[in-house]
Amino acid sequence: MTLSLMCLPYAGGGAGVFRPWQNQPDLPFRVVPVQLPGRDEWFVQEPCTTMADAARVCADQIREAAGTGPYAVFGHSFGALLAYETVRLLASDGAPLPEHVLVSGAAAPGVGRPRMDGALLDDDAFVARLRDLVGYDHEAWHEPELRELLLPALRADLAVQDAYVPAPGPPLTMPVSVLRGAQDDLVRHEDAARWAEHTSCGARVVDVPGSHMYFTEDWPLLWKTLGTLLAARG
């Protein structure tokens, strides 16, 4: 049976980020985009204000999409922390669990990370702060009409991340693979390696070429890397 890859969005993103993956004919996994309120077809809904609320939204979608088949969970940056909390929630619910968790561009939970403090910044300062932190810019952030559509969800997600403190609890019971851009100045290799503290099955860090948003320059490399890691999950 083909393994399903549940894809959780990074800050400000939505399921639409991953829907083009579904058109790739040679991927060795079934792509299941997971949505959050405040974006794409759920644009009119208010974004989640806590990590626990976002995890519940994701867990409910994953339970329905997974059924009884095998699955894994993938998330980048904010989405990596969200993936971790979503799997913890699934475990506490007694739901079927993923075989593998793949996190990207994120230090382990509990490791200090730069704050955005977006509520203190106007839109121009917010975009500049984000660009300086992640080393990435997006043309839509500079178009007034698009900015008005995109920034509310992005601000909300980063406020959730600023406030996030992982609650004590048992480690994950499946392997964790950690992807990191080799030139990512936001996430140190040693902080990515600390994901091993959060699973009883070990964690492997894979450095790939690029910075924090490495995959925007080479989507096929990300797909190939994910396929290789998932093929080796057993």
Rank of each mutant, 00 (worst) to 15 (best):
A192Q: 06
E85F: 14
M116G: 04
T86N: 03
P9F: 09
T2N: 06
P209R: 08
P152M: 05
T68I: 01
E139C: 10
L3H: 04
T173L: 11
D184Q: 11
G112Y: 11
E143T: 05
T216R: 13
H142Y: 14
V73D: 05
P168T: 01
G105F: 12
G110L: 10
R63Y: 10
M213N: 11
S4T: 01
G105K: 03
L149K: 03
S104M: 08
W42S: 03
V160D: 00
R233Y: 09
P37N: 05
P152A: 05
V165Y: 04
D117L: 15
P70V: 04
T2G: 02
R39V: 07
T225L: 15
G210P: 12
L149C: 05
W21P: 00
A231L: 11
V127T: 00
A159Q: 10
H138N: 13
P9E: 03
F43K: 02
T228G: 12
V101K: 05
P152C: 07
G227W: 14
R56I: 03
A125F: 09
Y136D: 02
T173Q: 12
A231F: 12
P96T: 01
P98K: 06
L82K: 06
A54W: 04
A11T: 00
D218K: 12
V187K: 08
P168K: 08
V57Q: 07
S200I: 02
D137H: 13
W219P: 01
L3G: 02
V206W: 14
W141S: 04
D157T: 02
R115S: 13
A65E: 10
Y214L: 14
P168Q: 07
H100S: 06
L229N: 04
T199L: 15
P25K: 09
R56E: 13
L133N: 01
L5Y: 09
A59D: 04
A80L: 10
R56D: 14
Y10F: 15
L121Q: 06
D137N: 11
E197H: 15
D26Q: 09
R147E: 04
H198L: 15
M51Q: 03
Y84T: 00
P170R: 10
V44H: 07
F215V: 01
E64K: 15
V208D: 02
A66G: 05
L89M: 13
Y136Q: 09
W21Q: 00
E148T: 07
F74K: 02
Y214H: 12
L102I: 13
V34S: 02
L222R: 08
V34F: 06
R19T: 09
R180V: 08
R115Q: 14
S4K: 15
A128H: 08
Y71R: 03
W42K: 06
A196N: 07
F18N: 00
E145T: 03
V57H: 10
F43Q: 06
A59L: 11
P96R: 07
A11N: 02
R113V: 06
P96S: 05
T228P: 03
G110K: 08
L172C: 08
L146G: 03
P109W: 13
V103P: 05
V31I: 04
G14H: 07
L230D: 01
D122S: 12
S104G: 07
L97I: 02
V187Y: 11
V32W: 03
F29P: 00
H100W: 11
F74N: 01
F43D: 00
H212A: 14
D137P: 06
D207V: 08
M1L: 11
D93C: 14
